[in-house]
Design a binder for these strands. Structure first.
Lengths: 190, 190
DNA sequence: AATTTGACCAATTGAACAAAACGGTCAATT
DNA sequence: AATTGACCGTTTTGTTCAATTGGTCAAATT
């Protein structure tokens, strides 16, 4: 085997999507960066969106691995929850492709991008939901709908980090952990 | 005094903003509906945005009154919190002007509309924050930053009602109250 | 004299058209 | 059998220009 053209294509597309976003990435460009004829791309992927899906899929896998790696069995459930969610949002903030896609979602509303980001959100919720089920079984937390609870947790976390920072000074990692513990785990009642 | 031209203008503008949104409402149209020369509008308001601001201000007042009216002193703090937030979101859902503005915000991203909706959100948060301060003083709930807590409450509430409904079957009023109580007041810890 | 008005102005918008760029195909090439 | 890029129909982009817009102000009205 001389060169793995499929890998060349994925690498080229990942680079271009990260640099220019989905819409601004052309198949000609991907072919050129990959040093491959445009037709070759279509022997591996049915269309542009299909290529995009594969790359997002790999990114989700990567994110899940990082989230799993963040879990520390020696710490409490709520501390781990914080670590995982923080890891996820850091991933969102640091990975060029992710940053570019969020930008494109709210600036250009590219349908394919909106769809894929929903996919990413679903994957995150599924991951948290999975950990919640374990926590409930082991009796670490109350009975609750894991799906809905994971949804609320992610939304609250995003609110605390992304939305709050839009109009106020950012909260540091410890402050977020404390707030999350207060609001969701302990509750406001005395 | 023959006719209150200022009131004619406000009524006309409110009607037009509610029917067509901010961008699609022209000053000529407002003048025509109000049966007033266009120049007259500019004796009361410096520009279109100024007129818009006045109308949003009146709407916020109306919303605050309805929120206050929803409070029932015989019920617990958390029940009242639910009533107020539910009232606010019902207002958002039912008032034609509000509906139109949310539509315009996400479809056309009109800057003046985005700015005013931020103003509305601030007013809601200020209102909840005020009630929270009272609750803390009276010892109904734990010490916490009222501003930040109100922010989180509104965001969580919007998540439960608006965002959740986008991909799942809607939660009824009682379910939302129970979830709000579970997540924010009691907490997930055993 | 004070208030109200709509013709008027500069700036913005959007319809219409042409040109360029796009995703995807496939006959020719390796 | 695998790879390619010229080619095709469609979509997007750039450009023009007339119509519309927010805002002004001299004239008309009270």
């Amino acid at each position: 085997m001389a060169v793995d053209r499929k890998k060349l294509i994925i690498d080229a597309a990942t680079k271009s999507f990260s640099l220019f976003g989905y819409k601004a990435t052309t198949m000609d460009q991907v072919a050129k960066i990959a040093n491959v004829g445009k037709g070759t791309i279509y022997t591996y992927y049915a269309n542009k969106e299909d290529l995009f899906k594969e790359i997002i899929g790999k990114m989700i896998e990567e994110m899940e691995n990082e989230a799993l790696a963040a879990i520390n069995p020696e710490l409490s459930f709520s501390e781990n929850l914080h670590l995982v969610l923080y890891q996820v949002l850091e991933f969102r903030r640091e990975h060029q492709l992710m940053v570019k896609l969020f930008q494109e979602e709210q600036e250009m509303r590219t349908p394919a991008v909106i769809e894929m980001l929903q996919e990413v959100e679903n994957a995150i919720i599924a991951f948290i939901s999975w950990r919640l089920k374990i926590a409930i079984t082991k009796g670490y937390i109350k009975e609750c709908d894991p799906q809905l609870t994971a949804f609320i947790m992610l939304k609250m976390y995003i609110s605390l980090i992304v939305d709050w920072e839009r109009t106020h000074r950012p909260l540091d990692k410890e402050a977020i952990a404390a707030l999350f513990e207060l609001y969701l785990i302990k509750g406001l009642s005395l």
